[in-house]
Computed example of a mutant assay.
Amino acid sequence: MDLGPARVAEIDASGMLAQVAGLAAQLREGYADARAQLAERIVGPSSVAPRDQPDGLVVCGMGGSAIGADLVLACLPAITVPAAVVRGYDLPEWVGPRTLVIAVSYSGETEETLACATRAGARGCAPACIASGGSLAALAEAEGLPWVRVPGGGQPRAAVGRLSMALLAALEAARLTGRHDEEVAQAAAQLEADDALLAPGRPDTDNAAKRLARTLEQRLVVVYGAGPTVPVARRWKGQVNENAKAPAFFNELPELDHNEIMGWTSLPHVASSAVALFLTDVAAGERLGRRADLTAREYERLGVTSEVIAARGSSRLARLFSLVQLGDYVSCYLALLYGMDPTPVDAIEAFKAGLSDPAG
Rank of each mutant, 00 (worst) to 15 (best):
A74Q: 10
S266E: 08
F250A: 05
A248S: 14
L256D: 04
A18L: 13
L167V: 02
A347V: 15
A128L: 03
K210I: 08
T110I: 09
Y31L: 10
I102F: 05
G161Y: 07
P50E: 02
Y224D: 01
R301W: 01
T343F: 10
R301V: 05
A24P: 02
A187M: 09
E172F: 05
D90L: 15
R123E: 02
L288C: 14
D70R: 06
T265G: 12
W236Q: 07
E286S: 14
Y224P: 00
A128F: 01
P146E: 01
V81S: 10
G153M: 03
C75A: 13
N251P: 04
A246Y: 00
T265L: 13
A292M: 12
E217N: 08
M262A: 12
N241Q: 08
T80C: 11
L334P: 14
L73V: 02
Q190M: 14
I348M: 15
R51V: 06
M1I: 00
A122M: 06
S105W: 15
A173Q: 08
S314F: 00
S65T: 02
G61Q: 01
R291N: 14
A246Q: 06
R219M: 12
I348Q: 11
A213E: 12
G201L: 04
A350M: 09
E183H: 14
D194V: 05
T229E: 10
S306W: 14
A9C: 04
A6K: 08
S315V: 05
A159K: 11
E29Q: 14
I261E: 03
G227F: 11
A209L: 10
G88K: 07
G201K: 03
V48W: 03
V150T: 07
T229R: 05
V160N: 11
D357L: 04
R235I: 03
L3K: 04
A69M: 03
A138V: 05
R41V: 03
A32K: 09
N259Y: 13
V221P: 03
F278D: 13
L212H: 08
E40N: 01
V43T: 04
A196D: 09
D281M: 06
D346Y: 04
G227M: 07
A140N: 04
V148M: 06
A233C: 13
L136S: 00
R162P: 08
A24S: 13
A137D: 02
P228M: 06
E286M: 13
L114G: 12
P228H: 07
Y333V: 07
E111R: 06
A244R: 03
E141A: 15
C116F: 02
S46D: 09
L334A: 15
V324C: 14
A117N: 01
Q53G: 05
E10N: 01
Y224I: 05
I130A: 07
V230S: 10
G303Y: 08
L139V: 00
Q218E: 15
G15Q: 04
L288Y: 09
S266G: 05
L73G: 09
D357E: 11
A128Q: 01
A174R: 00
D55P: 02
G30D: 06
R319M: 02
K210Y: 11
L220V: 12
G201Q: 06
M262Q: 11
Y338F: 12
S135Q: 11
A13L: 15
V223D: 12
S272K: 15
R175F: 15
P45G: 04
A187P: 14
A292K: 07
G44T: 05
G22A: 15
